[in-house]
Simulated assay, not measured.
Amino acid sequence: MALAALTEAETRLALLVAEGASNQEAAAKLFVSVKTVEARLTRIYQKLDVRSRAQLATTLRVH
């Protein structure tokens, strides 16, 4: 499963983004900065070998 490769914090962010949350919305919901969201998204993309929010959403739905 794709989420197994992620930390708990990364999983929460990945699910929010896959549901359509913007970086700003995700930051507010997770009580972190937008910079933190950007850094975590970069790691998530690398771990799951995806290149876009749409591809992330597809990957999380399929697995």
Results as ranks from 00 to 15, higher is better:
K47G: 00
Q46Y: 10
V37I: 12
G20V: 05
L48D: 06
E10V: 01
K47N: 03
A28F: 02
V34L: 10
V37N: 04
S22C: 06
S52M: 11
L15Q: 13
E38Y: 07
K29N: 09
A27V: 08
N23A: 04
V50E: 01
T36Y: 13
R43V: 09
E19W: 02
R12K: 15
E25C: 08
A14G: 02
E38S: 14
L15G: 03
E25H: 05
Q46H: 15
E25P: 07
K35W: 12
E25A: 15
S33Q: 11
N23K: 04
T42D: 14
Y45W: 08
K47D: 01
A21W: 12
K29W: 07
G20H: 06
V17L: 15
E38Q: 15
K35A: 12
R53D: 14
S52N: 09
R43A: 07
K35M: 13
A39E: 11
E38I: 07
F31A: 13
L16N: 07
A18P: 02
A21F: 11
A21K: 14
R40D: 06
Q24A: 11
V34Y: 04
T42K: 15
V34W: 04
N23V: 01
R53Q: 13
A21S: 11
Q24W: 03
E10A: 01
R40I: 01
E19A: 08
Q24G: 05
Q24N: 06
V32H: 03
L13M: 03
G20K: 05
Y45N: 10
S33I: 09
S52H: 09
K29V: 11
S52F: 09
V34I: 10
T11Y: 01
Q24D: 08
T36D: 10
V34E: 13
K47I: 04
A28I: 07
F31K: 14
K47Q: 04
R12A: 11
T11E: 08
T36Q: 11
A18N: 02
V37W: 00
F31R: 13
L41Y: 00
Y45R: 10
E38R: 13
A28V: 07
E10L: 01
A14K: 02
F31H: 15
E19P: 01
V50R: 00
L48N: 02
A28Q: 11
E10G: 00
V32L: 03
L13K: 02
V37T: 04
V17N: 10
K35L: 14
E19M: 08
K47M: 03
S33K: 09
N23G: 10
A28H: 06
K29G: 08
V50L: 04
S52A: 09
D49T: 08
Y45D: 03
L41I: 02
I44W: 05
L48A: 05
L41S: 01
V17R: 14
A18M: 02
R53K: 14
E19G: 06
T11A: 04
K47L: 06
E19N: 09
L15T: 13
A27G: 04
I44C: 06
F31Y: 13
Q24R: 12
A14F: 02
R53M: 13
T11K: 11
L16V: 07
R51T: 15
L15S: 10
E25G: 12
T36A: 12
S33Y: 08
